[in-house]
Design a protein around this nucleic acid. Structure first.
Lengths: 191, 191
DNA sequence: CAAAACCGACTGGCTAGTCAGTATTGAGCC
DNA sequence: GGCTCAATACTGACTAGCCAGTCGGTTTTG
């Protein structure tokens, strides 16, 4: 007997994200994905239900990876909310720089409204992490914000805005501090 | 002789934006666009070169409309940069609320990298408007910002973040002030 | 050696774009 | 105003080509 190979799954996922990031969905051929991944086309259908499932798996994986990395870093940080926030933002920025293809896809939703809904659960989870950090700061009395949920959604959006358009000549640290500058200024402003 | 009818062009554009906003690009049939617009399929090809041209026209029109509305409102405003900024942000928010379909498309780039480049000129133009407002404020001595170009890109991104995900239970004014709160806090913070 | 992974040539359905024919218009004239 | 007649807008049945997904055969491995 053979067993499904996790490395193969991963290489299909990698190939797919590289291609989806550079071409529109309908111009990405599964034949190309398979070739790029070094497997036969039929194999793709063993690991993924169909083209759409493959696409969504790429995006889902990206969110999971970011969320995990934030959770890991944040887990044993007992410092003030502002420090936690800095770290969490750093993770998102670092992920975006390390996985530009996937990050771009995560922030797209190629399928407009339909897809936005389908991915919203996991997207929501990321926002919720930021929201709880902000709320912790409010509890501490160092942050003020009438709409923490809205602000939470801004943060990944910041990275996106910087990252997706233009040549992005900034370093990880520059981007991280620029975002932090704006977020903290707003949060530390009295109500 | 007949003359091309601007109203017909417009109705095709409207039908297209409604459909592109609710389905992924490859699931939008030109037959459906034509039906929705109340014209024959062939007619679409008189007004637009092909499907891609139609899509990009929708997006381009959106940017032009926003840019125009900001220019119009801003033209005769001689007040401080902070007031100009408030007005300009208001225009973007108002446009997003008034044209949710088109706004969503403007912030997508269905074709990933390829399309990002193609639309970057007009997108850049919008960012440039915000950048020059910020720079005016720096000149006035009321703003400080190490990367005005980056901050400028954040602003439409803010609207996007608020607008695209979730139920968006906020009013135009709430969203406008929340964005302004963060942007001004950061800008007015000493370097 | 069998069970399951793997392969890639094949195909059926689907749709962007075409085009031959029809409808509509404006211009020039009375 | 109304008639004629190009000129061009408009139409939608049709087609060519493309590609997601299949499947019979092959290889791998426990």
């Amino acid at each position: 007997m053979q067993i499904l190979d996790e490395r193969k799954r991963r290489s299909i996922l990698d190939a797919a994200s590289a291609l989806f990031a550079t071409r529109p969905y309908h111009k990405v051929l599964l034949t190309d994905v398979a070739a790029e991944a070094g497997v036969g086309k039929g194999t793709v259908y063993i690991y993924f239900k169909d083209k759409d499932d493959l696409y969504r798996s790429v995006v889902r994986t990206g969110f999971h990876d970011i969320i995990d990395s934030i959770r890991q870093q944040t887990a044993n940080s007992a410092g003030p909310a502002s420090a936690t926030l800095r770290d969490a933002i750093g993770q998102v920025v670092r992920y975006a720089y390390g996985n530009p293809d996937i990050f771009r896809l995560m922030r797209e939703s190629h399928t407009a409204a339909e897809d936005t809904k389908r991915c919203s659960a996991i997207r929501q989870e990321l926002a919720a992490i930021f929201q709880s950090i902000i709320e912790a700061g409010i509890e501490e009395g160092i942050f003020h914000d009438p709409h923490p949920d809205l602000t939470a959604r801004f943060i990944p959006g910041f990275v996106r805005s910087a990252f997706i358009y233009g040549d992005n000549t900034f370093s990880v640290e520059e981007l991280q501090s620029h975002i932090l500058r704006y977020i903290l200024a707003g949060l530390q402003q009295p109500a």
